[in-house]
Write a protein that binds this DNA or RNA. Sequence first.
DNA 1: CTAAAACCTGACACTGACGTCAGAGGCAAC
DNA 2: GTTGCCTCTGACGTCAGTGTCAGGTTTTAG
Lengths: 142, 142
Amino acid sequence: MRIGELARRTGVSVRSLRYYEEQHLLPAVRSASGQRQYPESAVGRVELIQQLYAAGLSSKTILGIMPCMVTGEVTPLLLDRLTDERDRIDQQIAGLTSTRDRLDTIISASSDLMSRGERCTTHRLLPGEHLHDLCAPVEAAK
Amino acid sequence: MRIGELARRTGVSVRSLRYYEEQHLLPAVRSASGQRQYPESAVGRVELIQQLYAAGLSSKTILGIMPCMVTGEVTPLLLDRLTDERDRIDQQIAGLTSTRDRLDTIISASSDLMSRGERCTTHRLLPGEHLHDLCAPVEAAK
DNA sequence: CTAAAACCTGACACTGACGTCAGAGGCAAC
DNA sequence: GTTGCCTCTGACGTCAGTGTCAGGTTTTAG
């Protein structure tokens, strides 16, 4: 398969695929004329790369854990890296969940109040202060 | 409070605080000599900004939803924005969870095998292919 | 055979949230 | 006053992943 088809099938730009090769994430065999040739398995590999990118891993980090997916051997070092990343993602999820809940609280309270025709002006968003304390411009400091 | 203290108390760099002001996320009152003065409430505000940044919101997006936290009035438009962001975060969490599970599967299986002194060489990472299919360099294509 | 479409390399542009540096002024302690 | 730390503005640097363009070769369709 050539690069254009792989791009179409994965929804990833040709430019990105070349970049992945540059980062040694997606090796490609070259035809006599120098064109990149990919096997079927490249589709899944690109999707894996995209997923890891979406999870906030850098190309260097992906490269670091790729060997275990390439050779199928999981050394203790690789296992450590995988565990580190998993834990990082767990933390990220925790943070996102907390942010989500915070937004959700506002959304529920607001739509609740709005449905009763009231204006939400006193709901606490930040600990220890009321909404209007956040009004710009910030007033005189201590 | 001056910028240095705010930086220390929030763990955010002075540069970032100035950047937040530039983005109209964190207004500051100026002393006669031009130095920024922040009220106590700025601490919570900075933390909120950081949390939203961590959730992947851009400064423009944060600015877009900030009014409801500033004026305390939640217009239907703002409610829409909040809901959009909450939904986006939900999707992000879903993606991360799936990635996490994927890593976790590898981790469990590998440590399992390693504890039995075996080498993990056939565990399926990508649908339809075995690990060693991912070996670089990729072999001849169709 | 020829034109269009796809591919190649190399390079520069861009975005966003900062880091960093230069040069200048402000402020408290001694 | 002067020493030393804090702050100011302005500007350029960084990083990662991509977009985009130029100028040239290869493949494919008619």
